[in-house]
Structure formats: structure tokens, C-alpha cells
Design a protein around this nucleic acid. Structure first.
Length: 266
DNA sequence: ATGGTCGGCAACCGA
């Protein structure tokens, strides 16, 4: 069983990339952020041949989240509980007995801005959301573009970049504290290497080739699922795609539930 | 090089 995450930066523009990746990687679940499309314009016919059930919640121009799944999707909700709910930044569902929370956390603009305070509040509100709806004992996956690089291994130039909205004390503390609710960072569980990124700024010349990246996209899981995770890796070369992008895919693999011996018919 | 390039959408905002 495989679960993946991808910031599409426009699902309509990135559709050919997503279709090809789905065919190659065959995830059971793919969560997408920054679809940048209103629900009435979501390109369902484009993705129909891939054979996924799709749920989504978007808005005009910015944000937007979606879940693709091979299994049946149930209990779909959007947004945080309190105002502003930000329904185009959080979509939750249940698939094959697993709860999923797919988030696109605010980027923060600059550390001295109101938008940065809003970003920090988002982590506080998300903790309340987890407290209200889940227990750390539930099989729960929280994934998406969290807009935080957790440690010096997660950015290309930690000394130079420390203090930016996606890598500073407030944001790394916010994510560390929220993860302490009961989540394991599945990528870090399996790989201790620096230089493993999911985002490269378009504006840096040769940024991908020079690996001037950030690890901003995560697959987090509670203990019952984290212990079943057998691998987690970043996948794809986004500057080489037919529609080059600034994010790449992250994917986690879990043990299949196997029928127990001796319980079948002879 | 304290820069620059995308996407949506039609002048700029957001990343």
C-alpha cells in the first residue's frame, strides 16, 4: 500500500505529469495541494482514465486540495473547525480504514508580516483539530505541503536561510511541537541524509541541477501506521518534466495486511 | 548577482 503527496502548483497545468506519475508509481492514495482551481472547473474528465476516485476543495486562483484514491473515499470534510476555516487548505477523508488529513499550510510571506502570524496560528489550530477528531492511537496520516524545513538537513544553505518563513525558530518549533502530538516523519524514519528535498525555487538559476532545495512536503503517520511503513522517498525530477515544476512527489510504502495462516478453509 | 520564474488571470498576487 502506497500513499503519496504532491504540490501541483496548478493541477490543470500539471495534469500530464500527474497522469504519467500515477501510471508509473501506482500509489493507492495521492494527496495534492495548490490545485489552483474552483470546484466547478476541476478537470475530472482528464483524470477519469487513471481510475481513481477523486475528492477536492478549491477556490479561485490560490490554494486548493484534492485526494485521489483507488479505494472508496468516505467521511470527506474540508477546513479547520474554527474561523477562518480555510477550506481550500485542508481536506480530510477516510479510505480503507485509514484517516487522512491533507494540508497546504500557509507559506507566511515574511517573518514580520501578519501572514506569518497567521501561519503560526495555523499550527495551533491544527493541533486542536487533531485533538478534537483523532487520537494518536488511530491509524492516521497527516501529509502535504507543510511549508516548514525541520532541520539543517532540510535546506540547501541552513546558515544563510535560517530566519526565513519556512526555516526559523518559530516554524521549526511549531512543526516539532505539533508532530509531538503523535506523528512520525516517515521520510526521516527511513533516511538520515541531508540534501533530500521536495521543493526547488523556480527563481534560482540552475536551482534543481545544483540541488538548491528545501524539504517542505511531509508524510506523517501515527504509531499504528508508522510501524507498518517499510519505505519513504522523494520521487521525480521536476525540471525535466513535460511541464516543469517546483515541487516533486513524496511517497510512503506500508506493509499489506496479510490473511493469517490457519484461518482459511481447508 | 540580496537576484530570479512560474501560474492564474488579465493588473498584479502568491510562492
Amino acid at each position: 500500500m502506497k500513499i503519496a503527496s504532491f504540490n501541483a502548483n496548478s493541477i490543470r497545468s500539471r495534469a500530464p505529469v500527474i497522469l504519467r506519475w500515477l501510471a508509473e508509481s501506482a500509489p493507492d492514495i495521492l494527496c495534492i495541494q495548490e490545485t489552483k482551481v474552483q470546484d466547478k472547473d476541476f478537470p475530472l474528465p482528464v483524470f477519469a482514465p487513471a481510475g481513481y476516485e477523486i475528492v477536492f476543495n478549491g477556490q479561485k486562483q490560490y490554494n486548493g486540495v484534492a485526494i485521489f484514491a483507488k479505494g472508496q473515499i468516505s467521511k470527506v470534510t474540508s477546513g479547520l473547525d474554527d474561523e477562518p476555516k480555510d477550506p481550500a487548505r485542508l481536506i480530510s477523508a477516510e479510505i480503507n480504514g485509514i484517516s487522512l488529513v491533507n494540508t497546504y499550510i500557509p507559506q507566511g510571506h515574511s517573518p514580520d508580516s501578519e501572514k506569518f502570524q497567521y501561519k503560526l496560528q495555523w499550527f495551533q489550530r491544527l493541533r486542536k483539530y487533531f485533538d478534537t477528531h483523532f487520537s494518536p492511537d488511530d491509524p492516521l496520516v497527516w501529509l502535504g505541503d507543510l511549508n516548514v524545513a525541520l532541520t539543517e538537513k532540510d535546506v540547501y544553505a541552513p546558515d544563510k536561510l535560517y530566519g526565513s518563513v519556512c526555516y526559523c525558530k518559530q516554524t521549526t518549533d511549531a512543526l516539532t511541537e505539533l508532530a509531538a502530538w503523535g506523528f512520525t516523519d516517515l521520510f526521516r524514519k527511513h533516511c538520515d541524509l541531508p540534501g533530500q528535498y521536495t521543493f526547488w525555487d523556480y527563481r534560482l538559476r540552475g536551482g534543481f541541477r545544483r540541488n538548491l532545495g528545501w524539504r517542505l512536503d511531509y508524510i506523517m503517520a501515527t504509531q499504528p501506521l508508522a510501524e507498518k511503513c517499510t519505505a519513504c522517498w522523494v520521487d521525480g525530477e521536476p525540471r525535466e518534466w513535460e511541464k516543469p515544476s517546483d515541487h516533486t512527489f513524496i511517497i510512503a510504502e506500508f506493509e499489506e495486511e496479510r490473511p493469517k495462516k490457519g484461518t482459511g478453509h481447508l
